[in-house]
Design a protein around this nucleic acid. Structure first.
Length: 481
RNA sequence: GGGGCCGUCGUCUAGCAUGGAUUAGGAUACAUGCUUGGGGUGCAUGCGAUCCUGGGUUCAAAUCCCAGCGGCCUCACCA
């Protein structure tokens, strides 16, 4: 790594490119604690935007934010056997407070099901208390042993976890799908990343869930990234935490529960999917700076006129709630600033120099395409508004093309192995439903079933591995992060 | 947890093979001044290094050996 710009090409060395973009665009930095990162303001602003949009969606549907302790008694985690088995390898434990060893060690939450549902059992009495729909924004600790990857794998990360309790299985099911679709909309519309949705296989489902639904995207290196999950917990947790209500029928019933979450990993996906050799490209809807104005000054009278005009343009845009930065730093040349803001991924650059002043115009440059567009002064606001939307749309379309390009239908195992080795990506293949075939494929190729689509596609119905009948039809395999 | 690579001013690096004179050199960044300004301006001056840490070998260690820490790549596990 050298200089201030990105020195590695995205398609030459993808993982190095990723590290450079994250560090040089000042999105994150390595913390002095192993496996931990600092989320810097530009990336945190993206997270805040995600929070804003998700909060709007969950609050308008009756969910409420709350906060639960980050310390979870060991006994709680142990209550649901599968849940405990799933998480215990990566739980951080607190065994001492001050100088005193704890009588019962405390887990630093790897997820909050247990501590939340213990409280739910206290709060839920009758069918009138249902549904209970709680959400929490918090940090999570999972004690990874190795391989820190900024935003994608760190010991501590930020997320949102929704937890709901319902009177009926049907209501829970509706909630699971609601959350899944809510995520799909946020990720596609705001982050401009297309996703596949479906259910996880048994081996990939959340520890303690009845079933897990998930959103998966493909990264430019051909590896899949899980973008979010929504679990139907059935009554497993209700039974061990005794979450019961008295129904209209005057009888006791266990509640039906769901949990769902997205994490700061989404920011990593945004960087990987959209960035290019110059650095980051921010989708306009999450960009902390949507427009940067760069004056092209010259000595003499024009310098003042240009300064005044750029200020005027900045104010006009800000009045329309467009996040605008006027970069009038005198210590840097325009060319330097161009590179700097391209590295940071600002969607639109507005240049204003003597020529423009004379012509009553500005020059707009799209970050995603590099296209330069002269715009008459009177049309600046309308053009920026249109361009922001157009850039957002173009980015989604480009990411969609990536997804299509990285999705391959195969009919036999040789083809499967060939595709995994050559181009990677999602492999659509029929699967018989036997976990053994799934496990063998994983051992052979490293690929796992990422998604079983909701809409059954049975145009291929012979299992790609064992050649038996594949009633479930086609599923999506991939190597993943 | 396994395998591979790496660690020198804020950053990127030279030096390391074959231990000693380079005062640990350069570039960049940073500070000041002038200059310049439509794609990382140019000049000058200045500031800046426990050579990752701890042991060991040696008359002598940035350099050789061991251990640890941290990062990257990769496998396993996970969001």
């Amino acid at each position: 790594m050298s200089g201030t710009g990105v020195t590695v090409k995205k398609n030459v060395n993808f993982s190095e490119w990723y590290v450079e973009v994250v560090l040089k665009a000042e999105l994150a930095d390595y913390a002095p604690v192993k496996g931990c990162m600092v989320i810097r303001p530009d990336a945190y602003a993206v997270w805040e935007k995600i929070q804003e949009v998700v909060n709007q969606k969950i609050k308008s549907t009756g969910h409420r934010n709350a906060y639960f302790p980050m310390f979870i008694p060991e006994a709680f985690l142990k209550q649901e056997a599968a849940h405990f088995a799933g998480f215990t390898p990566e739980v951080a434990w607190i065994t001492q407070g001050g100088d005193t060893p704890l009588e019962e060690k405390l887990a630093v939450r790897p997820t909050s099901e247990t501590i939340m549902y213990d409280m739910f059992s206290k709060w839920i009495r009758s069918w009138r208390d249902l549904p209970l729909k709680i959400n929490q924004w918090c940090n999570i600790v999972r004690w990874e042993t190795k391989a820190t990857k900024l935003f994608l794998r760190t010991r501590e990360f930020l997320w949102q976890e929704g937890h709901t309790a319902h009177a009926t299985a049907e209501d829970a099911e509706v909630e699971v799908i609601w959350a899944l679709n809510m995520y799909k909309e946020v990720i596609e519309n705001i982050l401009a990343i297309p996703v596949l949705i479906g259910t996880k296989s048994e081996s990939e489902k959340f520890a303690g869930a009845l079933y897990t639904t998930a959103l998966e995207s493909i990264m430019p290196d051909g590896k899949a990234l899980q973008m979010g999950t929504s679990h139907n917990l059935g009554q497993h947790f209700a039974k061990v935490f005794n979450v019961k209500y008295i129904g209209e029928d005057k009888k006791d019933h266990y509640v039906w529960q769901t949990s769902w979450g997205i994490t700061t990993r989404l920011i990593g996906a945004m960087i990987m999917v959209h960035g290019d050799d110059k650095g980051l490209i921010m989708p306009p809807k999450v960009a902390p700076i949507q427009v940067v104005i760069i004056p092209i000054p010259f000595k003499g009278l024009e310098a003042e006129a240009i300064a005044a005009k750029t200020k005027e343009v900045a104010e006009i845009l800000r009045a329309k709630s467009i996040n605008t930065l006027l970069d009038d730093r005198s210590e840097y040349t325009p060319g330097w600033k161009f590179n700097q803001w391209e590295l940071k991924g600002v969607p639109i650059r507005v240049e204003l120099g003597p020529r423009d002043l004379k012509n009553g115009q500005v020059v707009m440059v799209r970050r995603d395409t590099g296209q330069k567009i002269p715009v008459k002064e009177a049309n600046v606001v309308a053009t920026v508004e249109n361009l922001l939307q157009e850039i957002q749309d173009t980015m989604l379309a480009k990411a969609k093309a990536l997804l299509d390009d990285k999705t391959t239908l195969v009919t036999n195992y040789d083809e499967f192995k060939h595709v995994i080795e050559s181009k990677g990506g999602f492999i659509k293949a029929a699967w018989c439903g036997n976990p053994e075939c799934e496990a063998r494929i994983k051992v052979d190729t490293g690929a796992t079933i990422r998604i079983r689509p909701f809409e059954k596609d049975t145009t291929k119905n012979i299992c790609v591995y064992c050649n038996n009948e594949a009633k479930g039809g086609i599923v999506y395999f991939a190597r993943s992060y």
